[in-house]
Amino acid sequence: MARKIPAINAGSMADIAFLLLIFFLVTTTMDVDTGIMRQLPPPPDPNQEIPDIKERNIMNILVSRSDRLLVNKKMGNIRTLKYDVIDFMSIHHDDPAYPEVTLKSIDYIGDVYTTKGIISLKNDRGTSYNMYIQVQNELAAAFKELRDRLSMQKFGRKYNKLINEDYIDAINKAVPVRVSEAEPEDVGGN
């Protein structure tokens, strides 16, 4: 005699699913990793000669042990650092107070003046990481602004709105992020 199998009560299914749902809701982290991208230079070659760079082409930024800024041997301020860097890296023709400019021919842009300026960043071992990131952030903001300016001028839209890879490459060539970090040493200072 065939017995009827009773139907399984599915009423508690929702509760079980809820339980699992709440577990995953609690454990999920939705944060995306963000950060400042940087490229490290290869280790220095002992045979390589130190390139001779003119004084006027370098902007020295020094972050002291007590998180204070020294920009070209003068006291600097983190709030104005971005504008100082933009000012320094902009094109100034025949002005000895600013770095030299050269005429460069770049695909898709044509002839454009580029600066020979370099930002030299130096920090003490006692500098706090917070301050270092603030300085890096200001430098990144300054270069972004410079790229935006050229991009607006040449292509009519901001740098991060560019779609064509060739255009992005061209802007990167015209405004390279020239930040040189000095070999570490104890610069001291208070």
Partner: peptide, 27 residues
């Protein structure tokens, strides 16, 4: 954030020696 740059600099030097040049300061 409160960490001193000394240890970070040491780590960066080691990364350079190991040819791991692409870095990201997580913020």
């Amino acid at each position: 954030g409160e960490t001193k740059m000394g240890v970070v600099t040491d780590v960066k030097q080691e990364l350079r020696k190991a040819s791991a040049f692409k870095i990201n300061y997580s913020t």
